[in-house]
Amino acid sequence: MTSKQLAWLIRRHGVEMTHLSGGSHIGAILSVADIMGVLYTDILKFDVNNPEWDGRDRFILSKGHAGASVYAAIAENGFFDTEELKTHYQNGSRLSGHVSHHLPGIDFSTGSLGHGLPVAAGRALAGKQNGVNFRSFVVMGDGECNEGSVWEAAEFANHYKLDNLVAIVDYNHMQSLDYCNNTLEVEMIKRWRGFGWNIIEVNGHDHGELKSALINTSNSENKPTVVIANTVKGKGISFMEMDILWHYRFPHEGWEYNCAVNELHKVKPEGVIDPYTPNGCPETIAQPENCRHTVSETYNPTYYTREVESK
């Protein structure tokens, strides 16, 4: 499977899983889909027949709310049947909304932000101490970088020269309630540079750029690497892109689901079969004009700093 095919399938599964469950975070699943697609085809070493293989690359999806993306990626790689993806969020399922390690192919649970990088650093350190040649990968959100524990780990990893540690920031510029810069102003690149990391900035939807950044992260100064992947929240479905509402809203039955599926079908790579709607959805339900309830442009949280500035 190519990275493009996997990324498309992650998006398609993500729409279906959140649609069926009424689950949140489709915006984050779509923004990270290309990163996950590239990782799980061209980058990560793993053995589907031996999930605990000692030589595998270690992987943590620290932005655990995008759990559907890793579930889809490993199911498509054969760790379990893709049919099980439909149980996401359901009673009795193995697929909790946030990442669970009670599944083959996943060995670390997340959901509370700021936990992944310290653990990934510990694994990278153990790899060096044990002389085992793997890389320790962690995918984080940009909002997640508000967490102080991220920066504790950033200091630690640089100090101990963990050049087998690779962090990828899904820099979609939005977090839970608003744009990142409206929440806590930040200069992402400068911040990581201040912590001494090897920094690679890429377009997080360009598979060529992602691959060339991730294929070899060794560097002469033995620094840990962070790939700042510039992304668009909701990428691939026009009415979800850069709209904070779709951090939580799920594609409802009707035009939201139909239009989402049909937009994906317009860019479906060759050789991919949509497991849910092989021919797309019938175009009977178009997006209504002047539909206000699925956009957040009227959403104006009042922030103290803005009030101060306006005075």
């Binding site: 310290p118 694994r123 780990a153």
Partner: peptide
Amino acid sequence: NMTGVAAGLALE
């Protein structure tokens, strides 16, 4: 971070 690193080391 100390505790997260400890978890990572222990998992290895």
